[in-house]
């Protein structure tokens, strides 16, 4: 990707600890506009913690987080709203609102931020649900959906405001391989079709292989590797072992 493409997500020297236990120990990361980056790492390596810093759900103990030119770590909740309208976060467990129907979940951000009449909202919701393969499910409630369907609704909800950056937290966790592959294909479609910058946190190497972007491997609170998946497989030590254990092999 050209050096002239602007960086939209920049993380510099981010430290974060919980109850005195360090999780991130000086993380640096830069993602360019339109890029799809996959953040790999084992369970508990701090991948989701890092992602939550990017839309202000968590604040670093020290370090800088800039997203779309905004100093996210230093904005208060009211000021973060303008960033969150442009940066969508897809939660690991979908985090759909249980008390709202599928249609109301997808319409939530539209009702919150845009002055549309009900007919326009219904049309927009219908189109979003159709784009994730769930046309006609507006009246269902989250409790009636399977894990894969919930994930699709979460995607539709996250895309309602046409975000410039989409953050995915373990998008295939808890899904069977076929459903996982379908969700990965949707993520690829969103990145290619809408041109959104995507940051995908996962431990699932099949996702990284399919998305075919740069990968960053988080280990012991810092990025131990940044490059392509094939390059990672050629590494000695824990980075290479992690990637090869997931079935990715070095080219030679």
């Amino acid at each position: 990707m050209s050096e002239r493409v602007p960086t939209v997500v920049s993380v510099q020297g981010v430290y974060k600890s919980f109850d005195g236990k360090p999780v991130l120990r000086g993380v640096d990361l830069a993602v360019r506009r339109g890029e799809t980056m996959v953040v790999l790492g084992g369970s508990g390596s701090g991948k989701s913690v890092l992602l939550k810093h990017l839309n202000g759900l968590l604040r670093p103990d020290r370090g800088e987080v800039r997203v779309l030119g905004c100093d996210v770590a230093r904005l208060d909740e009211a000021a973060l709203v303008s960033v969150r309208r442009r940066v969508s976060y897809i939660f690991q467990n979908s985090a759909l609102f249980d008390s709202l129907s599928v249609g109301e979940n997808v319409a939530f951000a539209l009702r919150e931020h845009e002055r549309l009449d009900e007919a326009a909202i219904a049309a927009r919701v219908g189109a979003l649900l159709e784009s994730v393969g769930l046309a006609g499910t507006e009246r269902l409630f989250p409790a009636e959906l399977s894990g894969g369907m919930r994930k699709r609704v979460a995607l539709a909800r996250g895309l309602a405001l046409d975000p410039e950056v989409v953050l995915y937290d373990e998008p295939t966790a808890g899904l069977d391989p076929l459903t996982g592959a379908a969700i990965t294909a949707l993520i690829k479609g969103i990145a290619d079709g809408r041109g959104a910058t995507s940051l995908v946190v996962t431990h699932d190497l099949a996702v990284a292989r399919e998305l075919d972007g740069r990968v960053a491997l988080l280990r012991d609170g810092v990025f131990a590797f940044l490059g392509t998946l094939a390059e990672a497989a050629e590494q000695d030590g824990p980075v290479g072992e992690f990637v090869r254990a997931g079935g990715v092999h070095a080219r030679n």
Binding site: L57, R84, Y89, F91, L96
Partner: peptide, 15 residues
């Protein structure tokens, strides 16, 4: 809502 990340979801949707 809090333990199922729905509160975080509300915040991340700008509410």
């Amino acid at each position: 809502m809090s333990v199922s990340e729905q509160i975080d979801a509300l915040r991340s949707l700008g509410a």
